[in-house]
Design a protein around this nucleic acid. Structure first.
Lengths: 208, 208
DNA sequence: AATTGTGAATTGATTCACAGCT
DNA sequence: AGCTGTGAATCAATTCACAATT
């Protein structure tokens, strides 16, 4: 599953640093210290430095990091250079909501197609997104054809495992799973879980 | 910030257990062992038992837990009994996507109103959701009026801190923040962070 | 016989503290 | 003088192991 020995949480934060560096780069900032960058991201400077340690050594002591160099370095490890194609499976409420949310594209991901068991029913709902809605029967063929490596899962809980089996078999290596189902997948497949209801519910414990 | 001494992650998992127990209850299952419940949720039995330990003692040794009793217990600690009102601020792409996603209601949360700086522009986009879209100027008044304790933040990054200040001042105690901004809030306010782009990006590290 | 509840052990993540560069 | 890089120390979370209970 792991590509190198970078802990999962560190990978997550590296992605945070990358976003921030991009902004600095746009503002033509040349150098940044671990302290400044860490504050911008909401972590401690030591943690930032430790995380960067997983990637290599890029700083100059006494000075800080070159924004450009550091960006390139993290981007090189983390980031797909080109637009990464993603499929979305399950065009229900949440699925079509995510389709109409265009926010992934500018982060380097493109939802190139969506799939649903009953594509006609939902076609109009998601029509404005511009993403083609296909029948789930074509899922495997499509993933193989376009060599899609990543998928967003927004199917109902009871369908999630089956869909996961199918797409993994077809070659998907990473899944962003919005269903509450706990998915069984081979070790080399990674999953991130997002459960919006639980995010809210676990917050509500703290309100009085 | 913490209400009792239950660690944040344990609270999150308790919410997971609760969902699962609800399902068991619907299926009229009477008892469940830590092993079975843990598997359903995707954690180890010992962790489940340790988590339950934060809440109290409900099991009978040799037998397991009464689904009903355990449900009541966790629900009592975690759950608002009645529908918890929530406001959503920022009706852009993601905001309107979440509005049209109806999934929160059946989990005990109701988005009772949405707010935007330019409500007219976006009104039609989110019209079908049935949630009224108001002008941000009325935010404070509204939160006070209805004593809203929770908010979903889907404003652009540069507006996030300002909105946070305003809603916290008005009485909001918990925020589900979808913006990439790192928010400064008083200790007694809790925040959950969801960054969909980063979820995807941190996955992409593991694909080849 | 089965299964909980929990103190102790372990593992993992974070932070400290400071040596090493520039 | 300032700031990185990292081994050592600390802190938090998870898992083990087993006594207690039905």
């Amino acid at each position: 599953m792991e590509k190198l020995a970078i802990p999962r949480k560190a990978v997550y934060r590296l992605s945070l640093y990358l976003r921030c560096l991009q902004k600095l780069r746009n503002n033509e900032v040349e150098t940044v210290s671990s302290e400044a960058l860490a504050k911008a991201v909401g972590v401690k400077p030591t943690q930032l430095r430790k995380d960067l340690g997983y990637v290599g050594q890029f700083g100059t002591r006494g000075l800080g990091y070159s924004v450009e160099t550091l960006f390139e370095a993290i981007h090189g490890v983390m980031g797909r250079t080109s637009l990464q194609p993603v499929v979305l499976v399950g065009v229900g409420n949440l699925g079509s909501a995510l389709l109409s949310y265009g926010g992934f594209r500018k982060e380097g991901f493109e939802i190139i197609a969506a799939f649903d068991k009953a594509p006609d029913e939902v076609k109009k709902r998601a029509a404005r997104s511009g993403v083609p809605i296909n029948d789930s029967r074509d899922l495997v063929k499509y993933i193989r054809n376009y060599q899609v490596k990543m998928a967003i899962l927004t199917v109902p809980e009871n369908a999630a495992q089956e869909v996961a089996n199918v797409i993994v078999e077809a070659g998907v290596q990473a899944i962003l799973n919005f269903s509450p189902a706990v998915l069984q997948v081979p070790d080399e497949v990674v999953i991130n879980h997002v459960n919006l209801a639980v995010e809210l519910e676990s917050l509500s414990y703290f309100v009085d």
